[in-house]
Amino acid sequence: MRKRGELTKADILHIARLANLTLTDKEVEKYHGQLSETIKYVENLDELDTTNVKPTSHSTNVTNVYFEDGTENTRLFSQEKALKNAKNTKNGQFVVKRIME
């Protein structure tokens, strides 16, 4: 595996694509510098041996929460209400980009 902390400009373009962001050349330049610096900084965690440490995802250890089936009427949206904030609708539905040619 490639050594960490060495972000290339190709990496910046790759991760921008993963985040679905379009960058200008100037932005690629800027974020390359800034993200490289941040990545280098976070690697101070390498000093810590965490081999036998369990990860924490919930800090007070809440697990297995169940919700009864069904929904209260106050939480139901009419079709009209659900579409109210959308800019592009057709026949009471959201218009999305074609994903298959």
């Binding site: 960490r4 990496d11 993963l18 985040a19 962001l21 960058l23 932005e27 800034q34």
Partner: peptide, 15 residues
Amino acid sequence: KRRLMLGGYTLSAGY
């Protein structure tokens, strides 16, 4: 944008 990209990187395959 910075945070979305950094997060995309740290969650990407192999990292």
